[in-house]
Computed example of a mutant assay.
Amino acid sequence: MSDGSNLQQSAYFCQGFSPIIPPQPRLLILGTMPSVASLEEAFYYAHPRNAFWPIIGRMVNRELKGVDDKIAACRQLGILLWDVLQFCEREGSLDSAIKAPQANDFQTLFERFPQLKHVAFNGQAAEKLFTSQVLKKQLLDPSIQSALQLITLPSTSPANARLKIDDKYLLWQEKLSDLL
């Protein structure tokens, strides 16, 4: 049983998850860092109002129930799911609260999957972090960097309340339909 001090510390220091990797990835979808709800559940997009899994479910024409079904949907669509950041400091879940960001190793990822050219960002914050923490700091091979096609999608976070889930789905479908 904890006295609560570790909980407070872990709420400030955040460590991301391992990627979900399909056998033949066609699309890399990146968030920033898992939310507090996701960290507590130890899986991507666990907040009940996050639209990510309902959107992916519509793309595979079924309701996604449980972690295994969500992983299977990513595999079916060829989605490699990960976050830009491996570590950061953050109070709460807001991307604007991220401090001391440390990116995942994208050099190794792109070397392992040279066919992976499309990178979609779940929101503008993920795109900005990828630009500042990966494109400007990691020594990506220039041929890898120039071949990447970057796509910024509306955030599925419940904090992005200006769009309804149906609008988010339509925008995601419009930008990704040719890739999936």
Results as ranks from 00 to 15, higher is better:
Asn6Ala: 11
Asn6Thr: 07
Ser10Lys: 09
Phe13His: 15
Cys14Ser: 13
Cys14Phe: 04
Gln15Cys: 11
Gly16Gln: 05
Phe17Val: 06
Ser18Thr: 11
Ser18Trp: 13
Pro19Asp: 13
Ile21Gly: 00
Gln24Ile: 01
Leu27Glu: 06
Leu27Ala: 08
Leu30Phe: 10
Thr32Ile: 11
Thr32Tyr: 05
Pro34Trp: 02
Ser35Leu: 03
Val36Arg: 11
Val36Phe: 08
Leu39Phe: 06
Glu41Val: 07
Tyr44Arg: 09
Tyr45Asn: 10
Asn50Tyr: 03
Asn50Met: 02
Phe52Asp: 01
Phe52Gly: 02
Ile55Lys: 04
Ile56Ala: 01
Gly57Lys: 01
Val60Trp: 15
Arg62Met: 09
Lys65Arg: 14
Gly66Thr: 11
Asp68Tyr: 14
Ile71Asn: 13
Gln76Val: 03
Gln76Tyr: 12
Gln76Lys: 15
Gly78Thr: 00
Trp82Asp: 12
Asp83Phe: 07
Asp83Ile: 05
Glu89Phe: 08
Glu91Pro: 00
Leu94Val: 02
Ala97Arg: 14
Ile98Tyr: 06
Ile98Val: 15
Ala103Lys: 08
Ala103Val: 08
Phe106Lys: 13
Phe106Pro: 08
Gln107Ser: 13
Gln107Asn: 13
Leu109Met: 14
Phe110Glu: 03
Phe110Cys: 04
Leu116Trp: 07
Asn122Gly: 01
Ala125Tyr: 05
Ala126Asp: 01
Lys128Asp: 09
Phe130Thr: 04
Thr131Asp: 14
Val134Ile: 13
Leu135Tyr: 06
Lys137Trp: 09
Gln138Tyr: 12
Gln138His: 13
Leu140Val: 08
Asp141Cys: 12
Asp141Met: 11
Pro142Arg: 11
Ser143Phe: 11
Gln145Gly: 04
Gln149Met: 09
Gln149Asp: 07
Ile151Gln: 14
Ile151Asp: 09
Thr152Glu: 00
Leu153Lys: 00
Pro154Gln: 00
Ser155Leu: 02
Ser155Glu: 02
Ser157Tyr: 04
Arg162Pro: 00
Arg162Ser: 08
Arg162Gln: 09
Lys164Arg: 09
Ile165Phe: 03
Ile165Leu: 12
Ser177Thr: 07
Asp178Ala: 12
Leu179His: 10
Leu180Arg: 13
